[in-house]
């Protein structure tokens, strides 16, 4: 998946997020920038009160971010399958298998864990289990 496709995917996930009242409720206190790095390509996702405000492509050394999810595109594609295979079904699976890394303010992630996991799962294909 190339950079333009990934950016479009994240923006589409933001659109879906705006139509999910339960996620907006869960994310009501979440106003942070999250770095998602895919195959070394940086995407800064800026959330405001649960809404995805903007997606900015890197590289950038000046954009502050709260936590980062770094993964390869093949793993992310597997994660976005409708029924992902074992160990690709959750963002922590990337860490467990060594295919990805989560760093930064992990506590900020954990405090908003359900919200962020369900946001990431919005990238799944339509028949996906949410």
């Amino acid at each position: 998946m190339d950079v333009a496709n990934l950016r479009a995917r994240f923006e589409d996930m933001g659109d879906q997020l705006s139509r999910r009242p339960h996620l907006l409720r869960l994310g009501a206190l979440f106003s942070e920038t999250v770095l998602i790095e895919v195959d070394g390509n940086e995407f800064y996702l800026t959330f405001h009160r649960g809404l995805l405000e903007k997606v900015t492509e890197g590289p950038s050394r000046q954009t502050p971010w709260r936590f980062a999810l770094r993964v390869d595109s093949a793993s992310l594609e597997k994660f976005w399958e409708p029924i992902p295979e074992a160990f690709y079904h959750d963002i922590f699976g990337f860490v467990k298998t060594g295919r990805g890394r989560i760093d930064g303010d992990i506590l900020a992630l954990v405090k908003n864990l359900r919200y962020f996991k369900e946001f990431m799962a919005l990238g799944r294909k339509k028949e996906a289990v949410q």
Binding site: I83, P84, A86, H89, D90, I91, F92, G93, V110, K111, L113, R114, K117, V129
Partner: peptide, 19 residues
Amino acid sequence: DAHGGEMGAALVSANIAPQ
């Protein structure tokens, strides 16, 4: 400063199969 139960549930969801 946070709800341990909600965080715990969100963490253990990693161990539940999507099927």
